[in-house]
Structures are given as C-alpha cells and as structure tokens.
Design a binder for these strands. Sequence first.
DNA 1: CTTCGATGACCAGGATTTTCATGGCTTCCC
DNA 2: GGGAAGCCATGAAAATCCTGGTCATCGAAG
Lengths: 224, 224
Amino acid sequence: MKILVIEDDASTGAYIAEGLREEGHSVDLIANGADGLVQATIGTYDVMVVDRMLPGLDGMSLVKTLRATKNATPVLFLTSLGGVDDRIEGLQAGGDDYLVKPFVFGELSARIAAIGRRPRTQGDPTSLKAADLEMDLLHRKVTRAGQVIDLLPREFALLEHLMRRKGRVQTRTMLMEAVWDIHYDPLTNVVDTHISRLRGKVDKPFATELIETVRGSGYRIREG
Amino acid sequence: MKILVIEDDASTGAYIAEGLREEGHSVDLIANGADGLVQATIGTYDVMVVDRMLPGLDGMSLVKTLRATKNATPVLFLTSLGGVDDRIEGLQAGGDDYLVKPFVFGELSARIAAIGRRPRTQGDPTSLKAADLEMDLLHRKVTRAGQVIDLLPREFALLEHLMRRKGRVQTRTMLMEAVWDIHYDPLTNVVDTHISRLRGKVDKPFATELIETVRGSGYRIREG
DNA sequence: CTTCGATGACCAGGATTTTCATGGCTTCCC
DNA sequence: GGGAAGCCATGAAAATCCTGGTCATCGAAG
C-alpha cells in the first residue's frame, strides 16, 4: 500500500514511517503542511496519515483543501487533542478516521488496514459526471439530460479520458498516447475527427457545449 | 440511510436509535446477537452499529460470521472496553470503525456519516473472479494468473455473462438471448464458435480449464 | 458406433476507424 | 484593414477490424 505520512515531529514521523515500511508499505514522509498538500496532489496514495497540528498549513485545512479538489484519498488524522469536539470536527472535514496520541503502533496499523480495505471506488469511480452529462463506466452507458447516447468504443474511450480529467486541457499528443497508444507523431488528425464525431453526439443535440477547444493546445471538458 | 443497531442495553439503544432517526435515518433496533445476525442477513443496510458485548452471540462473532458470507456492510463497533488490544481486534474482525462508551452522540453521528459516505460497490461488482481468472469490468481488462488477456467485445460479453453466473449451466439458447439478443433459433453454431475462440484465449494457454462443457445442455464456468 | 461437441479455416458483410481533402475561422503582423 | 499562416472542423472515401455464417474434420461421451 502507498502511504503518505504528514507529521512534523521528527521522531513520531520516523516511528510511523519505519513501522509501516516494515509491514511492507511504501511510505513517503513529509514534515509540513504545505509540502504535504503538494505531495498529496501530485502523488497517488492509498491512505494518508495526517497530523492535525502542523507548522504552516494545519492538517484540517490541508484535508479540506484536498477534498475540495475532489481528491478522496482516505485520511487518518493524528492528534494530541483528545476533546470530543475536535474529533468530530476532523471527521467532518473529510477525515476517515481519527487516532489520539499517544497511540500504540498496532492500532495505527489496524486502522490503516481497515481504511485501506474499503472498496476503492475512490480513485476509480464507476461513473463520471460533468454538468448533465453522465458516463456509467460499468454498463458503458452515456446519458445527457436523461437521454441515452450511443458511443462507439473509441468515442467512449476518448470521452472517458477527457471526463476523468475534466477541466484540464488534454493535448492531441496526450490523447493519442492515452486513447490510441500511439507514442510518435503519426501526422494525422484522428483526434480531431473523433472529437468532431463525439461533438455530433454529445454536444450538438444539446444546448450547451461541454467539449471545449483550447486553441493551440487541445481539448477540455467544461467543469460541471 | 438505513441503519441497523444491535445493542442489548435498552436505554443506550433507544438513545442511539432516536438520535439517528431525528437525523432522518431509518433505524432498526435489535437487542441480541442472534436476531441481529438474522436481521443483518435478510435486510439491506447502509451501516450497522454493533455493541461488542451482546447476550448470546457477541458482536465480534456476529461480524465475523457476516463477513464470511461476503456481506460487506460497514460496521461501527460500540464498546465499553477501552483497551487498545480490544480495539485492534475489532478492526481486524472486519469492523470499519470503533467507538468507546461513553460517547457523545455527535461523534457517533459523524462517524456514521464518514462510514456511510463510502461508495457502495455492493450490488454491482466492478470485477468478477473465478479461480485465477479475473475480469475488471471497469477497465474491460481480463487477466488470468497475472497475464493480461485481450478479448474482442463479443468475447468479453460472453465471458462476462458466464462469469456472472459461474457454476450455473447456460444453454446456448440462454446465451444467444443474453449475449446476442437473438430470440429465435438461427440454426447456427455462433455460440460454439465463440466459446471456442474464448477457450483459445482464456483456457488453452493455462493449466486448468475454466469453461466447461455440459454435454447436452450448454456451458458453465467452473466455480473458483 | 452414434451423436454431440470442438476446432480451424475461410469468407462476406457490416461496423468501425483512419486517412485525406477541403474550407472556415483566428491570430498575428504589417 | 488586408493578408498570410496556422489551427480546426467536417464530410467522404479508404482501410481495417469484427462478426456471423458455413463447412469439414476430429475427438470424446454415451
């Protein structure tokens, strides 16, 4: 399991990190909130262990920020604050669990296992949404404003890739690599063509357009 | 949210049940382990709150039994035992969270919300398994013994149908109806042909065969 | 030994994907 | 504002892939 530990106290941090590594996990240890947020954003973790008290950006704000960006990585808060209200606050901020210091390593381990074994639909949603457009990945069904849209396999794959990264521009090169698995420049406009066809099915029949062209770079799904 | 509370102490049980109902949940309250297990088995709940100490069947055994039947309903344990070892034990038994009595209602509520907002994969698995064969429905990837197998769409659909009914014989007619949507007898052996192609990819390269022929009736996936 | 199923080859038709050519629209620069 | 160049959109043609059908042969089960 890939675990990110954000803990400013060096000895506690090392204690946790080493213990988890001994259990076979891959652990990244970060000592402050700001860096932690960056790392959490760029990396992909199964679980995060976050101290509530951190220099700079505190744990609560960190998780709130993360959740606001749709990152749903399970978070286990660590705290020296034992008050009930604090605990509730942590859970409400989007934490998945809470452990009060001092704690026995065994309990941390058990709780991480419990969090980790949760069905990980998290990083892997079964449906993607943007405005009134919805993709059901499991049943391969696409609907917009309640209407079912039939997509060919390649169209589906293309839309899926864009939807998974909605709001972010995808260049033709990125799309060719991801959807076509082409790693050189074939001097073709396959992408354009498919975008065009997608639009014909997904945008044309409706009021607003969700597939945006970003001139000079690529395409993007409008944020829902 | 539908919540099952298994708690023998009448006043605690009522306290929890009423509090949860006030929050708009639908609550069933059961006072002993045996009945609780029955109720958990026949009903469909989003979350279960289980006291560890119960007359008859204790909470731990109850959850273990439940998990053994593949029931993955999230469980929040309640306990008066504050020892660290007990808590670990509960989590390992398949509990998802743990709350030590006495507790403030707000914390119970927050934890239930945290557990409940986990995505449910229940009724609709994202992957199908039989022995060492695995189908990832989300990514349309099939692997056997770690090896990736490429299937054409129709092959995938056929295998999926068989896998969803593994162990049960599917006649050619059933398969044609389900996979080909043909409701008459086209006097052809399409099914045979595709089964053969499937076998070529799924069974042939491996030691044991998973696609069994049931002479005179149809085909079946061997139970994993 | 009779019947049912397995398999491999092959083809045709259709569906899907890619390429290509054209024309429109932007942007930039003078 | 007028071009020119680059970008993009799109329709149609071409190439490719997938599917279903047929058939012949072989093997296994009853």
